[in-house]
């Protein structure tokens, strides 16, 4: 395992991704998702919206890190708000 050079931040990152997947699975078992159309141009399920949210969050982070001098925490906050908006109204 040592060759994988784990650090605390990446460990937290992957744990939260794993937790999200587990959470989504449990949610799906308790109340199955219904495909619906929100403000996104395509109709999506819960899982689709989570994926779109995570992917756009990655690009938000890249944009903030690469082309602005803002703190990464701002990117994280923006992504979290965006993810919530997407899950609720997307």
């Amino acid at each position: 395992m040592s060759w994988m050079v784990w650090t605390m931040p990446t460990a937290i990152f992957f744990s939260s991704i794993a937790a999200m997947l587990a959470g989504m699975t449990i949610w799906e078992i308790l109340s199955p998702t219904i495909e619906r159309k929100g403000f996104l141009p395509i109709s999506t399920t819960r899982g689709d919206r989570l994926f779109i949210g995570l992917l756009s969050a990655a690009f938000i982070h890249l944009g903030v890190i690469g082309f602005t001098s803002l703190s990464i925490w701002i990117a994280l906050a923006v992504s979290a708000i965006w993810l919530l908006i997407l899950m609720r109204w997307g």
């Binding site: 699975t25 799906e28 399920t45 899982g47 689709d48 994926f51």
Partner: peptide
Amino acid sequence: FSRFTFIGDKH
């Protein structure tokens, strides 16, 4: 994949 649907199959 061709016969069943299951949780998370599309993803």
